[in-house]
Amino acid sequence: MQRNPDRFWNPYLGGVALGLVLLVTFLVMGRGLGASGASFRLGAWIENAVAPAHVAKVPALASTLEDGSPLNDWIVFEVLGMVIGAALGAYTSGRLGREILRGPSFGAAPRLALALAGGILMGAAARMSRGCTSGQGLSGGALLSVGSWAFMLSVFAGGYGFAYLVRRQWR
């Protein structure tokens, strides 16, 4: 099979594949897919290793210790698989490789600064909304949860509303 980094799956067929993975996960696990829960738990695990006394005082962090380690949760295992699966997908499509993705006339350092800033904002936002585009938008969306649909519409509103201000990083 020829590797072509510019070739992607048909978006509708890819969506059906994603939907089937989500459906099977719902039926087997009783819950949908997610992502941001795992980065939060990884953070709680790191903070608990460095400052356990402080973690015990912060309710949201202390609650991740209920099953022993913050990493003892199914979402951590799901995201571990996600990283393996994504690396396999990138390797077999010729897209695996160290680079900083940005527009041709935008610098690497400002791009990384924006990536960090956006990440921090999303990390906080996903805690606020009990999940990100995966766990809240996709999974709750398929169950037709009102909160999930309100969340998804808000994500698009926020993205479209702010896109003009950061357009230079893609040019």
Binding site: A35, G89, E99, L114, G158, A163
Partner: peptide
């Protein structure tokens, strides 16, 4: 949270799940 996540999405260029995919593909 949705609006803030949407702003973070276009600033970072990824949502949380897709940033993991990019990181796994070697994208700094």
């Amino acid at each position: 949270g949705g609006v803030l996540l949407g702003v973070g999405f276009i600033v970072a260029g990824y949502c949380p799940g897709t940033s993991l995919v990019a990181a796994a593909s070697g994208k700094l």
